[in-house]
Design a protein around this nucleic acid. Sequence first.
DNA 1: CCGCGCTAGAGGGAAAACCCCCGAAACCGA
DNA 2: TCGGTTTCGGGGGTTTTCCCTCTAGCGCGG
Lengths: 223, 223
Amino acid sequence: MPAKPHPIKVAIADDHSIFRNGVIASLRPFSNIKIVCEAISGSNLLEQLPKTLPDIILLDMKMSDMDGVEICKNIKRLFPRIKVIGLSVYDHYNYISSLFEAGGSGYLLKDVDITEIVKAIQTVYTDGSYMMDKASIPLIKKLMDIQHPSVYYHIQHVTPFKDYELEILKLIAKEHTTQEIAENMKLSPKTIENYRGIMLTKIGAKNTAGLITYAIKKGLIEL
Amino acid sequence: MPAKPHPIKVAIADDHSIFRNGVIASLRPFSNIKIVCEAISGSNLLEQLPKTLPDIILLDMKMSDMDGVEICKNIKRLFPRIKVIGLSVYDHYNYISSLFEAGGSGYLLKDVDITEIVKAIQTVYTDGSYMMDKASIPLIKKLMDIQHPSVYYHIQHVTPFKDYELEILKLIAKEHTTQEIAENMKLSPKTIENYRGIMLTKIGAKNTAGLITYAIKKGLIEL
DNA sequence: CCGCGCTAGAGGGAAAACCCCCGAAACCGA
DNA sequence: TCGGTTTCGGGGGTTTTCCCTCTAGCGCGG
């Protein structure tokens, strides 16, 4: 491990000034980390990157002007060597997986302690990737340890549902009937009916109401 | 309006150091506001109050050791003159109403800009109460202007549903059938059926799935 | 006193959801 | 190549939901 030739250059991108200031103030005591860029939006971040060239970006996944995943893709396209750590208030599986697919190197919930952020920055800087070990997503972490390139595959095991079941689920949540879903997916209504039943038994729900509450609780469908 | 004899003394209670630091750093430029107390939990706050005696407390409604509403009740019991401004990531009606019932003087979402917090502090200090005018809860604000003691009553008008409709809604979310709900509420199944239909038309939903997503989105039922 | 709105309910019918059991491919690992 | 699992679908039935119409009582204001 090399000595510190210079501190780790970090950018923080978040449209909430309070959170930005909180991170900056909390990181001040850590002399080996230096905030070189403070962005209030996705486009603002992309503007500042060429001049500031951070090693790591702490990226809020939900900024007003651009989707976090899109921003991440742009960053990795323009500056492949910059690592992105996503920040979000949601620990939804699809958020996490899509960030990693977009080239992200880490994911943190916004309510973590500053020590967790520091650990993430340092781990990503030296090892290349990091996943917080919050109780809410212990499985993902475990699976990440085994093999990590894309979390997407492992996600499947965290929910009892398969790809096509999730697809059906989303259509149900959009108020589509079994018939409509069948047309949409080019399958027989009977097949969809079966899968609905299977989903119910899998989660022990009695009807669509239970299915929907489960799906929203688990973040399987976007509100 | 009096000249400033001394700055407004503010306490911040939140178990996330980043958020605390963010608020403190963001408030530093405002010379008429002074942070006199920084608490990391409900009990920690209550310990510090006798010594620090703030004018206003910025209180996170979701701390690990104690419920925000409970903390607020305790504060108002021990120090009735201290005003409490609740901070939360949720704009759910029941959160807001229960805080006001517990003696709170204001409510802010945690993703607001610092200027909003400053405005809240100053308004509560001089006028006694404050309600942020976020687009998501404009009606509540309007109703607060008219008469504020308990928001609970006005809540009813913010959702298109009546008391008994909400009751039915909750039972639907708990996977009860129309039959079961009828028994539970000692009404005819036909009546429940009617109300279900009325609820659907009120919100423009096509089926139970739509009803449930609406209810969860609006915070009408607890997850 | 008459109408009006709100609540509570009934009838009947159509559609959708739920349930169980079955069969044929296809695919997949041993 | 063999047997198991996954995927896709059918038959046929019951229950639940959804929709529309219609009635009766009750309270309230004009």
